[in-house]
Simulated assay, not measured.
Amino acid sequence: MKNFKIIYNDVDMELTPKEFHLMYFLIQQSNQVLSREQIFNGVWKSDNDGNSYIPSRIVDIHISHLRDKINEVRTNNDVSIETVRGFGYLLKNK
């Protein structure tokens, strides 16, 4: 079994495997606005059985959980996941 973890401000964020892959994808694309489709393709595409259907809320729900975990461990506003209305999300890294 592979173990992945993200330590932020000396705290293990205790991410699920999917949250880890989502965070890793967002970090790779930090400070870039990403559509839900781009995020889905970057994180869930390998799980998809060739079906192009994107469950309407899967990205939003995982972003929400990841946002909560970031907010629990951050001590200032140096990192945040922002919603870009009508398009997608942005991992803002100051």
Rank of each mutant, 00 (worst) to 15 (best):
L90R: 09
Q29V: 00
Q38I: 02
V79S: 02
L26D: 01
Q32M: 14
G50Q: 00
E37R: 06
E37H: 05
N93V: 15
G88R: 08
L15Y: 11
R57C: 04
F25N: 03
M1C: 06
E72K: 07
S64I: 04
F40M: 00
N31G: 08
L15H: 05
V73I: 12
I6P: 02
Q28C: 12
Y89T: 01
I39A: 01
R85F: 15
I27Y: 12
P17S: 14
T83M: 12
G42V: 05
L34D: 11
S46G: 03
V11H: 09
I6A: 04
I81L: 06
I63A: 14
W44G: 05
Q29G: 00
T75W: 01
D47S: 13
P55I: 04
D49R: 01
W44F: 13
D68Y: 09
N77I: 08
V73H: 12
D78N: 10
P17N: 10
K69S: 05
S56E: 14
G86T: 03
H65Q: 11
W44A: 04
E37V: 12
L34R: 08
I61F: 07
F87Y: 10
N93I: 14
Q38A: 12
P55T: 08
K45T: 00
R67V: 11
E72V: 11
G42Q: 04
N51G: 00
E37K: 06
K45F: 01
Y8M: 14
S80W: 06
L15K: 04
G42C: 02
D10Q: 12
E19S: 09
S35C: 05
E82A: 07
F25L: 13
V33Y: 05
T83G: 10
D49K: 08
K18P: 06
D78L: 05
K18F: 11
D47V: 00
W44H: 05
W44S: 13
L26Y: 01
H21W: 09
N31E: 09
L22N: 09
S80F: 02
N31D: 14
F20R: 00
L91Y: 11
N51P: 02
R67T: 15
M1L: 11
T16R: 11
L34S: 01
N48D: 14
T75D: 11
S80I: 06
W44I: 11
K92A: 13
F4L: 12
F4P: 02
D60Y: 02
K45L: 12
F25A: 06
S64F: 11
H21A: 15
